[in-house]
């Protein structure tokens, strides 16, 4: 029985190696170039928003917040018209990494799960992808803040 298990493990390892060899891969370089262009354009758009808002007399902080709002809104609208997923199909990480990707991950389940009701459909599922981001972001920043406090404390003594 034991020997059988070891044989099976070995067979599985060999098979997985073999699968890795025969599986076709998309060109990593081409995908990186697409991600670069897509991500670059979204960030440039952010920079344009910042410039426009500061032009109109906003402080740097407020302009940054308004830029976040604008990008999120734009992404949600594009998600509603099913355009955002097409951008990601082409641009990959280029449209996942910016804040617009986060907004897409909130709006998409909200639209998809509306058929399952306000509370258990939209209410729960709106967090399926964004929930972990919020949880672990807050948790990490809490830990970092705690360490920061301890360091301050140590330095104060």
């Amino acid at each position: 029985m034991k020997e059988e298990n070891i044989n099976e493990q070995q067979r599985n390892r060999q098979y997985n190696e073999y699968v890795k060899q025969v599986a076709p891969k998309a060109s990593c370089l081409a995908n990186c170039v697409k991600a670069f262009i897509t991500g670059g354009l979204i960030c440039t758009l952010g920079q344009i928003f910042i410039a426009v808002y500061m032009e109109n007399g906003m402080s740097k902080e407020d302009a940054a917040l308004w830029t976040t709002l604008s990008l999120v809104l734009l992404s949600v609208i594009l998600t509603g018209f099913n355009i955002y997923p097409l951008i990601t199909t082409w641009g990959g990480a280029g449209s996942l990494v910016p804040i617009t990707g986060f907004a897409n991950s909130v709006a998409a389940p909200a639209i998809e799960y509306k058929k399952e009701g306000q509370v258990f459909g939209i209410g729960c599922k709106i967090f399926t992808i964004a929930g972990p981001v919020i949880l672990y972001g807050i948790l990490t920043s809490w830990v970092a803040g705690l360490l920061y406090m301890l360091v301050q404390w140590g330095a104060g003594r």
């Binding site: 976040t68 709002l69 999120v72 949600v76 509603g80 909130v106 639209i111 058929k115 803040g145």
Partner: peptide, 26 residues
């Protein structure tokens, strides 16, 4: 601190996302 600073991003995504769910269908 965390939620205060991230409020604009998270709230806008949730609120716009919710409104989108009212307007758009799968």
């Amino acid at each position: 601190g965390g939620f205060t600073a991230s409020a604009a991003g998270i709230s806008s995504a949730l609120i716009f996302g919710y409104i989108a769910s009212l307007i758009f269908n799968p």
